[in-house]
Design a protein around this nucleic acid. Structure first.
Lengths: 238, 238
DNA sequence: GATCGGCGGATTGTAGACAATAAGTATTTT
DNA sequence: AAAATACTTATTGTCTACAATCCGCCGATC
């Protein structure tokens, strides 16, 4: 009997669907529906939801069911505030403590990450980026930072998915740079350069931040008050 | 029917027993026994354990039951490494965002904290110290730092309980200083001095750290090789 | 006409019984 | 006699059924 594996599959599927926004923030998670969908009964499903709540994927309110962890203005602000500190600390510790086996896993993930970029598979790219940084979290081997990192990665992934717009080809260059930075992470970790990894984490964050910000606060429309839009566009005047 | 409240009571009791070392790190948590003890059935108890696992109080291994979160050498090292960063960040944010209602709760807790010190109630003092800092965590209103803070406070409380030794009267002074710092926290939060709160958090940490360290690395025994112990004690010679 | 109170459907929470896995023990075999 | 294997037992994981709570709807009353 593989009800055990069905439960594990359910957990993994829910995480994936939440990260890729297939289940958007705030959406309700009906126990009966999900239990039927993953062919398990409600008690193990409820346990899974409790576990996901502990990991920060969902929010549970007494007698009012589970919902996908919401993302509001404050969440975004706190994310921008907290991410650089935690990412940097984790990178430093990862370089200090990584084992050869962990580095191998990181390299494998990086290969898949580059492949996802090449193939233009947005969701897969986001998931593999999450996995890359989660692996660095494992390397850090710090049970006190791990939970914060996990929460950050959840929302980082969801934010990336939110603000992704395939029409902006210019981002291809930024994605390349991000992938290059991942390679650099691997190098620094291999030579145990904690300080270098911490610095790179901040640069990596800055790249990601600017990419997100370019969607949140796009360039102002290039149109003068009362002028001909086409003329404004031609001259480049503000 | 108040099975719901029994479940809540069970959760609170388990947290309390873990923090006070009534349930020591690594000890097994038998589902049937606990369910009977708190007069609930196993499914809700299992959900409670899953929740506590998410909060960092217990560790669950597939098919091998739940145990109280262990504390080994590495845990202690990571704790000393991580605590100042998180405590400081939380204190800054708490000062920035605290509401009057939260400040009132903090003051209430501080009164109880001082009372516990006066009465020499170690466990209650440890619990109220935990609550004080958990309330500051609430004030910070940062869902990304909260989980790390919670985990730190769990082990901070347990470490305090571990290394407490009522024979050392000299610590009464340190406890007074800690309580004074709590008062200072309240003042700084009330005037929204984030930088001051962050600095105080580091000082507060340093006090706690030195107190713990004095137990981990006590003064060397005052005995000369081959000499009469009593003589060494009398003269104070190394 | 608007608001409050009560009723019914739907959903969450709980209970007890059953199945499966793991650990401990005893027996058997080399 | 020691080690490995099979069996027993205790414990975890799961399922179905039942109870309690919440939310939306309807009617009644002011």
């Amino acid at each position: 009997m593989d009800s055990r594996s069905r439960k594990a599959r359910c957990l993994e599927a829910l995480r994936h669907r939440i990260l890729t926004l297939d289940l958007p923030p705030g959406s309700a998670l009906d126990e009966a529906t999900l239990a039927a969908e993953y062919e398990i009964s409600r008690p193990p499903l409820r346990e899974s939801l409790r576990q996901l709540a502990g990991e920060g994927y969902v929010a549970i309110r007494e007698n009012r069911g589970a919902t996908v962890a919401p993302m509001d203005q404050r969440t975004l602000r706190n994310f921008f505030l907290t991410a650089p500190m935690i990412y940097s600390a984790v990178a430093r510790l990862a370089a200090d403590h990584a084992t050869p086996a962990q580095i191998m896993r990181l390299k494998d993930t990086q290969i898949l990450f580059r492949a996802a970029i090449r193939e233009g598979d947005t969701a897969r790219r986001a998931i593999l980026n999450e996995r890359f940084h989660a692996l660095m979290g494992d390397m850090a081997a710090n049970e006190f930072l791990a939970p914060s990192l996990r929460r950050l990665l959840i929302d980082h992934t969801r934010i990336s998915m939110t603000f992704y717009d395939p029409r902006f080809a210019q981002l291809a260059k930024q994605r390349e740079r991000a992938a290059d930075q991942h390679d650099r992470f691997i190098e620094l970790i291999e030579v145990r350069d904690g300080q270098g990894a911490a610095d790179l984490a901040l640069a990596h964050w800055e790249l990601s931040r600017s990419e997100i910000e370019s969607f949140v606060t796009p360039e102002a429309l290039n149109i003068q008050l009362g002028s001909d839009p086409k003329a404004a566009h031609r001259t480049g005047t503000i």
